[in-house]
Design a protein around this nucleic acid. Sequence first.
DNA 1: GCTGCTCCTTGACGTGGGTCAATACCCCTG
DNA 2: CAGGGGTATTGACCCACGTCAAGGAGCAGC
Lengths: 250, 250
Amino acid sequence: MFIDQTRPIVIERSPANAGMPDPCAKCDARGQSVCSAMDAADLSRLADIAVVQSYDPGATVVEEGDLAAYFYNITAGYARLCKLLPDGRRQIMGFPTRGHFLGLAVTTTYGFSVEAITPLRLCRFSRAKLRAVINDFPQFESRLLETAVHELVVAQGQMLLLGRKTARERLASFLMSELVTQEACACPRNHVHLPMTRADIADYLGLTIETVSRSFSRLKTDRLIDLHGGAAEVTILDRRRLAAIGDGET
Amino acid sequence: MFIDQTRPIVIERSPANAGMPDPCAKCDARGQSVCSAMDAADLSRLADIAVVQSYDPGATVVEEGDLAAYFYNITAGYARLCKLLPDGRRQIMGFPTRGHFLGLAVTTTYGFSVEAITPLRLCRFSRAKLRAVINDFPQFESRLLETAVHELVVAQGQMLLLGRKTARERLASFLMSELVTQEACACPRNHVHLPMTRADIADYLGLTIETVSRSFSRLKTDRLIDLHGGAAEVTILDRRRLAAIGDGET
DNA sequence: GCTGCTCCTTGACGTGGGTCAATACCCCTG
DNA sequence: CAGGGGTATTGACCCACGTCAAGGAGCAGC
C-alpha cells in the first residue's frame, strides 16, 4: 500500500463458470494485477465470481446514472470513460484498456459511461460478491486502494493538463503517455496506435476535433511525429522534445 | 466500502503526545471520520502516532517533489493543493479543509504542494506508523479506500468542469460546491465565505484572475449572487438557477 | 489620516482555439 | 473501380477568454 501502483488489475473467469481451462491461473496479466495478492490456491474464489462479457465497438457497457451493480475488469480491447453535460458536451476521463479495473469511482449510481472503442472483453463482478471476496482476503482491498490512489494521481495530472496546458502541450502529453503505455505491451518502439477517433481525443483533451487535427499537423511539420495509415498510426520522431513539450517546458 | 464517502477523516493527538486531555476521544469530527472505524478503546492507537502542527497563512506544508514521508489530516483552516508547470503556470487541485486527509494521491514523492490559506492546524502521521495501525485495524484501510474513491469522483467532476464548462459555469459550480460544504458546518444558509484569493480561484477553475472577477460581476448583475466585505463574502440569491448554471443546463 | 501595501475590478485590445464549411482520405460494398 | 458513408484535414472567420494597463478598495503601520 501507498506505493506507486502502475500494475493493472486483471482477472479472468474459472472453469466453474465457463467449462474452460482455468483462465485465472494462466492469466498472463495476473502477476501485475490485484490477483497477485491471492496465491494460486485461492484464485478460484476470484474466478468463481467473474462473468466474462464481450462488446462490439461503440457498444455501451455502463450508462452514466445507472445503478452501479457491477465492477468490471478489462481483459482485452480499448474503452472510453465519459461524462456528459445536459446539452451534449462530453468529457472523456480516460481510455481504460487491458488490465484496468472499472467502477471504483462509484457511489450508488455510475458517475460515468463506459463505451467500447474496439471489440472489448471484460470480466464482470457483482459488488456484493466482490465484497465477500474482500472480506476473506484483505490483501485484495489493499490492492484496490493502490489502484484508486494511482487513478487519483493520474486524474490530478489530467487536471493540470485541462486547466493549464496549451493544445500542443496536451497532444504531446497524450501521445507520450500512450507511448509509454503501449511500450509496456512490447509494441514496436517509438510507435503509437490510436484506436480512438479524433473526436474521442478532443473530448479527452478538452479541445475540438479541428484543434486536435491542427495540432497533429503542426507536430508533423515540426518533425516531432509522423502520421500513417488513416491517422491511426503515429511514429514519434523526437521523443525527448515531445516529452518536454508535454511537460510544459518552454 | 464502495458507498458514497462524503464524511471527512479527522484525527487529533493524544495526551501521550501533548500532555492535554485526550483530543481523539472528544474530537467533534470523529463520528464523520476514519476514526469512526475504531472504537473508543482503540482510539489511543491513533492518538499515539499523531503529531499536531500549525502553519501561518502562505506557509508551505508539503512541497511538490519532496519525499512523501507523512500523511496529514487537517483539523482546522483552509489549504490549497497545487501542481506547477516549469514556467510557473499553476493548477490548484482543491481546497482541503477541516476533516480532509492529505497524501493519498502520492507515490514515493508528493505530486502536489500543500500551502496554508488561513492559519492551518493539522495532524501529521508518518507513513510507516500509519501502516502499522492499518495492519492492526483493517477497517481503517476500508475507510481510506472510501476516501480515495470519493476523491476520485470529485476529481472526475473537476475534469468535466476544466475540459468543457464555460467561465460562468465554472464559477457557479465552484460557488455551489463551497455552499454545500459550508452549510454542512452550520454556517448561515445561502452564504459562502471565500478565504482564498481570486488568483487561487482562477488557478482552481483554469481561468485568469480577470475572468474570475468579471464572472463574479456578471453573476451579481444577473442577481444570482451578492458580494460584500472585500470580495470574500458571497450571498447566493438564486440557488436553483446558480446550481443549474453550474451543472451546464442551458 | 496619510502612506503603502496587496488584492480586486474594470476597460481596451489581442489571440488561441472554437465554429462553420469545403474538401480530401479511407474503406467498404457491389 | 465507382459510389457512398464515415472520418480527417484545412481554410476563413469569430469570440470567449487572456493580456495589459489603469484605477479603486480595504487595511496595517505609524
